[in-house]
Amino acid sequence: MFESRHIKTFHEVIKAGSYSAAARSLGYTQPAITQQMKALERDVGSPLFTRVGRKMQLTEAGEALARHAQAILDSLSTARQQLDAIARLRSGRVRICAFPSASATLIPEAIARLTTGHPGVHLELYEGEPPESLRRLVRGECDIALAFTYPGMHAEVPAELVEFRLMEDLLTVLLPTGHPLARRRAVHLRDLAEERWIAGCPRCSANFLHACAEEGFVPDIAFTTDDNLVVQSLVAAGVGVAMMPALVLSFLCHEKVTGRAVEPHTRRQVSAYALREHLRIPATALVLDELKAVAAARIGC
């Protein structure tokens, strides 16, 4: 293994033509240059220079190393610049795995803030529902995972993950605009017992079934999908109603869909997770801070 300072000195000796000239250029003493070249020759296992009269001439090994010296130094310089940029938050890549409604709301706002303040930080976005998103985080397939839990739900979080609570997301019900209960500001879940329902992801469906059981009925689930746009289209077509988080109301695409608060009130906890050791990576810490800021702004609205 060659030391980078030895390669730099070797390159300067070649350019300057002698140990003494290289010493003057680098601000070293000539004995220091001699010692570094001897150390490099030990690493190479062969002499690098030979004297022809008063001139220094590269040996075959020296010529071979000389052909690579500039590329080695250029590569080290590029690496230093990239590492410095990452440390100073001028660049960096952060991979986020988030559930769909967060991908459509919290993530775009965070990206907009990052683009303004830190344009060199790049985000890669993957969609995934919990608990699979947390498994992907543990496997190293992403750097931050956004996930949610419902009250009373036992959700195992791997010990190596750190949780950052972002916000509580109120559950609502999506109704066709012409539905009789759409005139109300809030709808009691029990009043929808006879409706056909559209259920979501497994975690959301489990909470929905539990909420219905608490109100004394078993819902008629006609469709199941975790695609929020499909849910809206089905509700707009009048083929069912759906219990959805309030985040979804931020991107309602159908004029024929109305969102109303559902009683009794239930909120899901939205959190960001990261591996403990990744918190020391500046870009990851920055993205977490931006997500917290975005969530706090929504809470304050």
Rank of each mutant, 00 (worst) to 15 (best):
F2N: 03
R5T: 00
I7M: 02
K8I: 08
I14H: 00
K15C: 06
S18D: 05
S18P: 05
Y19R: 10
R24C: 01
R24G: 00
G27E: 00
Y28W: 07
T29M: 09
M37I: 15
D43T: 05
D43G: 01
V44G: 02
G45V: 05
P47E: 01
G53C: 12
M56G: 06
E60S: 01
G62M: 00
A64M: 10
L65Q: 02
H68N: 12
Q70V: 10
L73H: 01
S75P: 00
S75F: 05
T78F: 03
D84L: 01
A85E: 14
A85S: 15
R95T: 15
I96G: 09
C97R: 12
S101I: 13
S103N: 10
S103E: 12
T105C: 08
I107C: 09
P108R: 11
E109H: 10
A110N: 11
I111L: 12
L114F: 07
T115C: 07
G117K: 09
H118Q: 03
P119F: 08
G120N: 07
V121M: 09
V121K: 00
E127G: 12
G128C: 12
G128V: 13
P131N: 02
R136F: 14
R136A: 15
V138Y: 10
I144D: 12
A147T: 05
A147C: 05
Y150S: 11
G152S: 11
H154N: 13
A155D: 07
A159N: 08
E160S: 14
V162K: 06
R165Y: 11
R165H: 14
L166T: 08
L170P: 07
L171A: 12
V173R: 00
L181S: 10
A182D: 02
R183Y: 00
R183N: 06
H188M: 06
L189G: 09
R190S: 10
W197N: 03
A199K: 02
C201L: 07
C201M: 13
C204I: 05
C204N: 11
N207H: 15
F208C: 04
F208S: 14
L209R: 11
L209D: 03
H210Y: 13
C212Y: 11
E214F: 10
E215G: 06
I221W: 01
A222I: 01
F223C: 07
T224R: 06
D227H: 13
L229C: 05
V230G: 07
V230H: 08
V231E: 03
Q232Y: 03
Q232C: 12
S233P: 03
V241E: 06
A242R: 02
M243H: 06
P245D: 10
P245L: 08
A246Q: 03
F251R: 15
E255P: 12
G259N: 14
G259E: 11
R260E: 00
V262H: 09
E263M: 14
P264C: 05
Y273T: 01
L275A: 13
R276F: 01
R280L: 07
R280K: 04
R280V: 05
V287G: 08
K292D: 11
A293L: 10
V294D: 08
A296F: 04
A296R: 14
C301H: 12
